[in-house]
Every structure is written in structure tokens, then in C-alpha cells.
Design a binder for these strands. Sequence first.
DNA 1: TAAAATTGGTTTCAATTGTAACCGCCTTCC
DNA 2: GGAAGGCGGTTACAATTGAAACCAATTTTA
Lengths: 164, 164
Amino acid sequence: MTTEKTQADDAVRDDLHLEKFLPYRLSVLSNRVSNAIAQAYGSRFDLTIPAWRVMAILGRFPDLSAAELVEQTAMDKVAISRAVSVLMRNDYITRSEDPADRRRQVLNLSELGRDVYERIVPLAQQYEDDLMSSLSPDERAQLESIIDKLMERAQAWAERGLID
Amino acid sequence: MTTEKTQADDAVRDDLHLEKFLPYRLSVLSNRVSNAIAQAYGSRFDLTIPAWRVMAILGRFPDLSAAELVEQTAMDKVAISRAVSVLMRNDYITRSEDPADRRRQVLNLSELGRDVYERIVPLAQQYEDDLMSSLSPDERAQLESIIDKLMERAQAWAERGLID
DNA sequence: TAAAATTGGTTTCAATTGTAACCGCCTTCC
DNA sequence: GGAAGGCGGTTACAATTGAAACCAATTTTA
């Protein structure tokens, strides 16, 4: 009834099922996941998502500057700067001036920061495991490669301009 | 020094590869996609993402109230209210009081709104198609079902409380 | 070697978003 | 039928975010 169309060739395009629309679904999924996790460690360690991301990167790649964090995280430099300043306030990271280039500041987890990092990692891992546990091994592998492909495609939009 | 481990069995969990971390990847992917698309129709029709979402739903399900939009979109009611008010300002939707319940306001696309809607749908479709074109038919099907499963899982966190 | 242009990073200001309080209408239950 | 509570929707205010201007150090170039 409601699915009837007056014009045959309008039928397809005229009907957008938002619930089925991939970009929309991605956004809902991503928000649900991020918010849940943010809540989990935010409530324990008083960390925002950007702050935790900075810590996650520094935990793996020490001695980065803010600019290098920008590359790694795809966050913008203002967000990094703010995350860094709250992390400094919490003594979760240290900042030292690079003598070779006095504009540059080298960042690292502090001892306290590494402590927190090491407690959060398993927690984060646990969430990921829980998510993944709903998938078969085959699906997991598929997902990896699918995300890569979609990412590449979306990246292309940004680089080579939008469609149309 | 800082990378040394004191305890052998910390070694595995201690290493979080953010670039491989599903929640993180989802968020980057979703942002890239949404921003690109938002830019595409935002620049043409001066629509924000929430506003476009409201139109997308109204295009498919006429005669909804704001509360029903909340259900459909998973946006919160303030966001809906704001989207509705800009859409009213642009004459993209109409609002009529429900005589049976004078609190309730029935929303619909205006003629102009439907026009815009019908021009955006193919555009949105095109983006989705372009994204999907990077996947094989098999992968597309997989993705559908994978997203469903992940969504369900993440939903469970919200409902039954977080892990741990 | 002194302007000019670039780079790392921060600050400022405006726009977006989330939370909570709120107003008006409606229902219900004494 | 009239207070008490619930629901639809908006407003107000605070927190977050993004864009652009900005400062200081460095590199370029002439």
C-alpha cells in the first residue's frame, strides 16, 4: 500500500530508507559504541575521548609532538592542544621542549599516565572483544577488509573532491 | 627504558593498536563519510545533518510528530525541535496542530521541502552507491548483517549496563 | 643577514550540542 | 471536577567543538 508508486521509474530513487542508509547506520553505530566506552573510562579516570586518544597514541609511540599526534589521530590541532592541556593538568603526560627546535614540544606519558594507560587498555580491549564476540571469525576478517575499503573510498572524496 | 616491562604477562594486553581498534576505526570512518555528504548537500541546500535527517524521515513517513521523529531517528528531542524550527524557517516543512491533542504537532514536508527531498535522495543514494561500489556483492551482504550484529551488541551495553 | 614565508602551538570567538528546567495541555484518580 | 502527575515541545544555560586569528620560533630567499 504505502509502497505503491505512481511513476514506475521514480520508484527506486524516490524512496530512501534511512534505516538502511549506510552512512546513517555507521553514524548511529559509531556513536553508540563510542559513547558507551567513553562512559566506561570517563567515569573511572575522568578522561574525555580526545584525551584518551592522545594517551593511546602516546602509549604506543612515545616522544611525539602535537603535530605528529595530529597525523596519527586525524584529530585537528586545536583538539590536540586542548587534550594535551587537560592531560598536563592531570599529570598524565609530560611535555618537554625540544632543544633542536624550540617551538616543538615532545610529549610522553608520565608515570601516572602510563599507569592509567595500562589499566585502560585491557578495559578497552574488553569492549572490543565483546563487540567482536558477536561475529564469527570469518565475519571479523571480512569486517577488517570492508572497513579498509570504505575508508579508502571516503578518503578519496576528501582528496579528489566530492562526487558529482 | 619506558618500554620495558616488569611483568611478562603484561606484554600482550599492554599494547593497544589504536589504528586497529574497532571503535576508533568506526568513528573515523563514520565522520569522514558524514562530513563529506553533509558538505555535499549542505552547500547546495543549506541543510544541517539533523535537519536533513528529519526531512529524510518525513519524506518516507508523513504526518509524524516530533516525538515520533525522536523514535525513528534516535536523535534527542531538543535536536529535533531545533531541526524543525530551521526547517520551518526555510519553508521545507509544515506544522499543523493536532485537534485531538493540542500539544501534538503534525509535521510534513512542504511542497518546496518535497522538491528538495526528491533532489537530495538521488544525491545521497549516489554517495552510498559510490561507497558500496568498493565492495563486492558478497561483502555488501556481509556488511549489512555485521552492522546489525554490532548494533545489537552496542545496544545491549546501553540497556543492560556496561561491561565489568 | 634581514625581510618574508612557514611551522608548532595556543587563544579567541562563534556555532553546535547536551542537560535541565520549564510551559501548556492532557489524563487519571480521588 | 480539580489537584497530581505525565507527556509534547521549547527555552535557557553550560559545555564542546571548529574556524580563524594569533604569537613565537624557524627556515627560506634574496
